[in-house]
Design a binder for these strands. Structure first.
Length: 290
DNA sequence: TAAACGTGGTT
DNA sequence: TAACCAAGTTT
């Protein structure tokens, strides 16, 4: 294993880390878990106020588990991907029932919880419990891609080679490994960014393969998908906004007015019901789930 | 494995 | 301005 990157990046983190609330010594494992779910595909700035609100309202998993799932969806606000709120509520219930109300510390038990995949399990085990796991998020994948492979961007989907690389770089001492993981993520978030990296501020610039090879341009396939306007996703978002902003159940016309295409609207509503995000009541009205 | 899944800021 | 991007997971 290589240690050439470890000390410069740890030193850089010590003086450049953002003071994020879920990194505070007073943050609980539950607070870390909630932050990780909220941060999936969602920028820090948008998460911050919602996280504070959640922590004040639901300081422990049993607090959230005692509420209807619809309250979690409502309090999710406009963070996006509201199925995360539903799964976080289900996770709170599972923790309450299966783990005595305490967020489990083992990677396997975390992985068993709804909405928690390989990244989030590793992140919670590392950041909340100071364990030694390879934490591979989009930031770390990009940093290692540039530093080690010399490619501007990592492969479209995670490879075994990337996991092997990340594990090889992981310091042996668990608390140091946990610190390393958050430090590499932070480097990717603040310096080794996707679009215009601030290489002048990089602590390992002299060891960066991509840099040493003259920063060759990305030559792979386009990495993005379709536009958002007009999609079912946008339609679902509109419908959910109506339900979130209403005090209680809403009449069907209140949903109909936010999307003109009836075919697409009904399809979107059906998928929301199938996902458990919308509850069709017996009286014909619609509500957030109970 | 690829596509689906929200939202808003940045380039 | 349209495209890209943000601490991914699920099916």
């Amino acid at each position: 294993m290589s240690t050439a990157y470890t000390d410069p990046i740890l030193a850089w983190y010590e003086s450049n880390a953002r003071d994020l609330p879920w990194r505070s010594p007073s943050a609980t494992p539950w607070g870390v878990l909630v932050s990780e779910i909220m941060l999936q595909q969602t920028p820090v700035n948008r998460v911050m106020p919602v996280w504070h609100e959640w922590m004040k309202r639901w300081p422990t998993p049993p607090d959230l588990a005692a509420e209807p799932s619809g309250e979690a969806v409502r309090a999710w606000g406009r963070l996006g991907y509201p199925r995360r709120a539903l799964r976080l509520h289900a996770t709170a219930k599972a923790i309450t029932e299966r783990h005595d109300g305490e967020v489990p510390s083992s990677h396997a038990e975390l992985l068993d919880l709804p909405g928690i995949g390989s990244y989030t399990a590793a992140a919670v085990a590392s950041f909340a419990y100071r364990q030694r796991h390879a934490v591979l998020d989009t930031n770390v994948r990009r940093v290692l891609s540039r530093l080690i492979s010399g490619d501007e961007y990592p492969p479209k989907s995670q490879t075994k080679a990337e996991v092997a690389t990340a594990e090889a770089l992981l310091p042996l001492d668990p608390p140091t490994a946990a610190l390393w993981s958050v430090a590499v993520m932070e480097l990717g978030a603040l310096v080794c960014t996707a679009r215009t990296p601030r290489c002048v501020d990089c602590p390992v610039l002299d060891k960066c393969t991509w840099q040493l090879e003259g920063r060759p341009a990305y030559d792979g396939p386009p990495r993005r998908g379709q536009t958002y306007a007009g999609t079912d996703r946008q339609c679902r978002g509109r419908l959910m906004a109506v339900l979130r902003d209403a005090e209680g159940p809403v009449e069907k016309p209140a949903l109909d007015i936010v999307w003109s295409d009836p075919i697409q609207r009904e399809r979107a509503l059906d998928t929301l019901i199938a996902d458990g995000l919308v509850d069709p009541l017996d009286d014909g009205r619609y509500a957030l789930p109970s």
